[in-house]
Design a protein around this nucleic acid. Structure first.
Length: 383
RNA sequence: GCGACUAUAGUUCAGCGGUUAGAACAUCGGUUUGUGGUACCGAGGAUCUGGGUUCGAUUCCCAGUAGUCGCC
């Protein structure tokens, strides 16, 4: 096993996850490089703000550029020229999301996810076996089993079906994974880490059932699947807490798609270790910037909504604001440019604005994780 | 100086003798949670001036003013 918890405080923990492309201190955050790039940013820029691991997506890369090309490039690391750890998402959530928005685009069957390519209309079938094979072809350090997410407002019966199917698919994923490890002559150090995904919607017993079944199958890590926010966009903290508790403390816990900075703080507090989210990059592109109001570790946990705020850089109040986005930030945008200038870039539609905004937000998230990585050794502030 | 054409939102344009005059862009604000997203949602904002015809004029007529083009 390549995960070691080094410090604990209550359910929160700090650990070390070893991958083929280096060791990572947990908790950590992975930006989404869905199509083998973090939109608009160069590798050098990503490194400059402290990004190390990233997430790529099986679904998107399968469609474009296709696996023949990735294999020809010598794997996804070589293709992207990124030497940090890479995790690939299985594509299950993307197909679910696609179908949920437009049922005509595909369907989920017992065999796998059937969908039409948005590029050429051809039909693809993403089976558990294929999802694993693709991720081996990508050559990532961490891979995710194909799962069966459902919308939050589905009935208990629907979630029961989703859990059972996710478990059946997990076994197929594991069998396929074992075949590849054997066929490729991989050992404990060279094999990628395999993450199962715990489904079950808002039902704690279904989450526990799913987690226990995945443990029996055997994964390196376990993820929280499905949507983790309620209909009002609020984090479903109780179910996230229960789900973490139903996963062995010996394995890394991956909170897929989480989240806002306050969501990440809350999830880490209840035992989650890995995070990925589009928020810093997408919201940055749309002009929302994250700013620390203070960086007191104790207050981060006691008031997880109050240690930062966001600004919409396009708002009129920043037109003549010649201060940096965040005076405590060391990113290129904050050390070289003013809010007024970045607003100007947004107003004239200059892509550099979105680029600087995403860069800053990523620095904010990396800093957040750096703070959480020291949280447990800070003196406890009892109230 | 003469003639033609034009005059509606900040801008470029629709429109109609009769509810609340539309759009795009711009402005102001919001949304975004395992990225079909240079995306999406909402708000504020206008009939050049003065007469006339008419039950009723932003619309039709006249004059003025302004602009564009053309001609001397």
């Amino acid at each position: 096993m390549t995960f070691q918890v080094t410090q604990k405080r209550d359910a929160a923990r700090i650990g070390m996850l070893t991958t083929r492309h280096g060791a990572l201190t947990t908790p950590f955050f992975m930006p989404d490089a869905t199509r083998a790039s973090v939109r608009g940013l160069t590798n050098a820029q990503l490194r400059s703000v402290g990004v190390v691991p990233m997430v790529v997506n099986t679904y998107h890369l399968l469609l474009q550029p296709g696996m023949d090309l990735v294999r020809g490039a010598g794997g996804i690391h070589n293709f992207m020229q990124w030497d940090g750890p890479l995790l690939s998402d299985s594509g299950g959530y993307q197909v679910y999301s696609l179908i949920h928005k437009n049922a005509a685009l595909g369907k989920i069957t017992e065999d796998g996810a059937v969908f039409k390519s948005v590029l050429d209309g051809r039909t693809h079938v993403l089976t558990p076996e294929k999802a694993i094979r693709i991720q081996f072809d990508l050559g990532v350090d961490m891979m995710v089993m194909l799962d069966d997410p459902r919308p939050n407002d589905a009935t208990r019966t629907v979630f029961e079906d989703a859990v059972e199917r996710t478990i059946r698919w997990a076994q197929r994923c594991k069998d396929e994974y074992d075949r590849h490890v054997a066929a490729r002559d991989m050992d404990e150090a060279s094999r990628p880490l395999l993450f199962g995904v715990v489904q079950g919607g808002p039902f704690a017993d279904l989450r526990a059932r799913c987690a226990h079944a995945l443990h029996a199958i055997g994964c390196d890590g376990y993820g929280f699947g499905g949507r983790h926010v309620d209909m009002d966009g609020r984090l479903m903290e109780e179910i996230i807490t229960h789900t973490a508790a139903s996963i062995t403390p010996d394995a890394p816990r991956f909170a897929l798609g989480i989240g806002t900075p306050s969501d990440i703080v809350r999830c880490h507090a209840v035992g989650w270790d890995l995070f990925d989210c589009v928020i810093p990059t997408r919201e940055g592109r749309h002009g929302r910037l994250f700013v620390y109001t203070h960086t007191d570790h104790a207050q981060m946990h006691s008031a997880p909504d109050d240690f930062y705020h966001t600004i919409n850089i396009a708002n009129a109040q920043y037109r003549q604001d010649f201060s940096p986005i965040d005076p405590t930030c060391t990113c290129y945008a904050c050390t070289n440019h003013t809010r007024a200038y970045i607003q100007h870039l947004f107003r004239v539609g200059e892509p550099l604005g979105a680029q600087l905004a995403a860069l800053h937000n990523l620095r904010f998230f990396v800093r957040l994780m750096e703070m959480l990585q020291h949280l447990s050794i800070e003196p406890r502030h009892n109230t």
